[in-house]
Amino acid sequence: MAYYNNYVMVVIFIALGILLPIAALTLGRYLRPNRPTAMKMTTYESGNEPVGAGQVRFNIRYYLFALMFVIFDVETVFLYPWAVAYNHLGLFALIEMLIFVAMLLVGLMYAWKKKVLKWNSR
């Protein structure tokens, strides 16, 4: 039962984290001036008139990285419980994990060879 106290503490920390910005910004509302003009409200673009839409589409080049992230993040999900229980598992689990990681490394090598990891994937 007492273990839940730790989570009470976590909840208190999260609540304080939410409360501080709210309190500070509310306090700030009474301290700061507020004289908006149309010019102030324009989007910043190094002093020029903003050209076109702000939320432009551009080639972010990170799409394939996102796919690889998903694969390796799942790997970490397997690694963590394995690492915690490592001392009880013995050699068999070590070799199994070696095979698992080797298989993922083959995937990484493939991506490497396909120039996914390069900025210009030509």
């Binding site: 999260i14 984290g17 939410i18 501080l20 910005p21 709210i22 500070a24 306090l27 700030g28 301290l31 700061r32 001036p33 507020n34 004289r35 908006p36 149309a38 102030k40 409200m41 324009t42 989007t43 910043y44 702000g54």
Partner: peptide, 27 residues
């Protein structure tokens, strides 16, 4: 704290206000 707070006309107001809080809470 005493500086004027400007939110651009074109900004998504709700998300614009939420973003710094979302960044700070996990920290």
């Amino acid at each position: 704290l005493i500086k004027e707070d400007t939110i651009p006309q074109k900004a998504d107001r709700t998300l614009f206000i939420l973003a710094p809080i979302i960044t700070f809470v996990p920290a």
